[in-house]
Amino acid sequence: MIEQIREKARELLESGELDVVIGYAEGSDPTRTTPIFCRKPEDTDKLVLDGRCVNTLPAYLNKRHEYPKKGWKKTGIIGKGCDIRAITQLIAENQLKRDEVYIFGAECEGVVAHPEKWDGSLHEGNCASKCSACDVKIPLDTDFYPGEKPEVDRSGPYMVSAPALATLVKMDDEDRFAFWRDDFDRCFKCYACREVCPHCSCNICITDRTMPSWVDQAAHTKGVFGWHLTRAMHLVGRCTGCGECTRACPVNIQVDLFNQKMKEVIQESFDYKSGYSMEVKPPLITYNTDDQETYIR
């Protein structure tokens, strides 16, 4: 599979059709892979694709990371199904044009939840929970796909995958607040959750603005609550559920639970699943006159 992608990538880099191919290469430890920017045809030999490829590479396509994009006219990107959903969502939000990217897709068997759990193979014990409810293991929209792409029914509703969510929803409000307060105690606001996110594409994040200061910059609990609520609200109806925010968190705060909860709400209220269409507008930038308003007096 990866051989065919390597070959195609090499061909397109040689012909000059692509300036760069973003993919995965072997990392510095056997348990890890690392993003690689292939600019020369021979770089494509380093490409790998397996269960260790956790990164959501479309993060490099959004505006925040303008620097490596300098001089790229057409970018090739190797994507798992969930990554390609992120690209689709970026296009739906006008953050990217479809003809700026060339998508290499491949069937994905799931990825490891965290590199430190990699023990040579992917199995139930270490596979990320997001993969259990995945309907894009055969990716949605690709320019290159090794072999024949089978038809997949993706009409089903969004399924919450994190088992922890069920536990949290059952709690009382007070307990849930206490749970987050205790977890957020560890947060030191490194913003890894923001930086790995393909959808956090603001050039200057609201937390980095100090006049006015909407979110306290210091990492006391109040400021951490402010940040994670803001982040979650800004991703409502946009998050494609790659789970990188949780995976990247150095102190293992499962911030994607907020996103998963909101995806469920959006699915139920507006029948919208992010990352499946380049045309349908995300729910919060549009409206229906007969939207649900049971909560309004």
């Binding site: 609520l229 109806g237 409206y287």
Partner: peptide
């Protein structure tokens, strides 16, 4: 827009506790 946004926001605040 406010109606949609607040529907989401209420759910978010509730999940926050």
């Amino acid at each position: 827009y406010a109606r949609r946004r607040n529907l989401a926001f209420r759910n978010l605040m509730e999940f926050n506790g």
